[in-house]
Nucleic acid binder design. Structure first.
Lengths: 235, 235
DNA sequence: ACGACTCAGATTGCATACAATATGTATACA
DNA sequence: TGTATACATATTGTATGCAATCTGAGTCGT
């Protein structure tokens, strides 16, 4: 992994983390001059960073009117509910098929970090650790055509999850424990190259998030459309 | 930012078209200075265009070593076969559900252009017209989480299709006619808001491309550069 | 010969100055 | 009072010069 530590990639990483954790709120305006001062680089490279972030969906660029953190609307949440189960299942199935031993170790380490964050971390640490876990499964899947949508989903998933990685009730805490156990089972299924099991776990893991999100968005508990039936992934 | 007719967006459009039609071959090195001269803008905005193209998968940026048109390898073709049927079916189903009347008109116009290109157009015109048709269905689907992968698929689909929009046998010509008829049926299904039918047409339409692509790949006849996957570098 | 090293030339990355465009405020007028 | 216009300010977009890095030919040594 080329985790270069240039001012530019630091700025990129910092902006991504800030957006994922809602430290930069959806819709917030980004001032080029301020960002340049904060991260110690000039406008040219910062503008390139912003353009890359725009390509990945983190921000939106408006002609002559600067960048703003990408919005999260109810309309986009509906689209999220449609896309997520399909993409997540496909990614985990492919991860089980294509993962390398080195990636298994990476994933286990990410899970360790996740558990540690659940024990003594802040809400943001938990959301970021969970995000990292799932991004590794994305790398494992090794499919350049599914990754763009998968990463776009993870962006909003992390932002939404910030609302429920600060549990208030015992039910909340149990949900988080279930998610943690899902991760363990996912590692096992991927390690065993069991694509079918990985796909089922993806569905179960998604159902957990789905219910949690539905609760938060509509306290009445209405169920949203859950997307089309899962498509065949092979051929 | 788009639709605007600035030197910048012209350069963007020209590069996209050149890449889609293989006028710029996969793996080709892009010289900033040459591109600037050709499109009449300086390096700063051109670099921003290249960065945007990188975000959308058209080019790959390598640290201190410039941009190159994104490769198409055998590995990526396998990934393509896995992702395409799933995403295409989902997009067309959603298009049937969410399309607006104005978009139906747009789609019909795109189909007219496609038919005209089949009659008197060059290979590139046909591939671009087909690409435009499908991109409109993507807009109709109106799902920001599926679109990134869909558009990434269309990029390579257009490039691959360049190898078979120059038909040599009657079988080739019949295949193209079937594709044209599929488009007509797709418009009907979307107009009728018949998501199930749209999904089935997606499968049929994909099967056509799949067989065509398999033909070209299996005999070892794919005359595209099939280099190793480029290793992306963070900047 | 073969390989490692050196150093021009070329290309990329960055900073800054300048031009173009948007925003906010004050004033003129109905 | 409300609206429109004009101007000052702030912000964004572009061009250019310079620094950093890569490439490749030539040289040296073994």
């Amino acid at each position: 992994m080329q985790s270069e530590s240039s001012p530019k990639s630091n700025a990129y990483d910092a902006l991504v983390a800030a957006i994922l954790t809602l430290e930069l709120a959806p819709g917030a305006d980004l001032d080029e001059a301020r960002l340049c001062a904060e991260h110690g680089l000039s406008r040219t490279p910062m503008r390139e960073v912003l353009r890359q972030l725009a390509g990945e969906g983190y921000v939106t660029l408006r002609l002559n009117r600067g960048a703003q953190v990408s919005e999260m609307s109810h309309a986009s949440l509906r689209a999220f509910f449609i896309a997520a189960p399909m993409i997540y299942a496909a990614i985990l199935q492919l991860a089980a098929e294509n993962r390398t031993p080195a990636q298994i170790i990476e994933l286990a380490e990410a899970q360790d970090m996740f558990i540690r964050a659940l024990r003594n971390g802040a809400t943001a640490d938990r959301a970021l650790a969970n995000d990292r876990f799932h991004r590794i499964t994305g790398e494992m899947a090794d499919n350049a055509f599914l990754l763009p949508s998968f990463n776009r989903l993870l962006l909003d998933h992390a932002r939404i999850s910030m609302t429920f990685y600060a549990p208030r009730t015992d039910a909340d805490r149990n949900t988080i424990k279930t998610a943690r156990d899902h991760h363990e089972q996912i590692i096992e299924a991927i390690d065993a190259r069991d694509a079918a099991q990985a796909g089922e776990l993806a569905q179960a893991h998604w159902a957990l998030s789905r219910d949690r999100i539905a609760q938060f968005v509509m306290p009445g508990g209405l169920d949203l459309p859950l997307g089309p039936p899962p498509q065949e992934v092979r051929q």
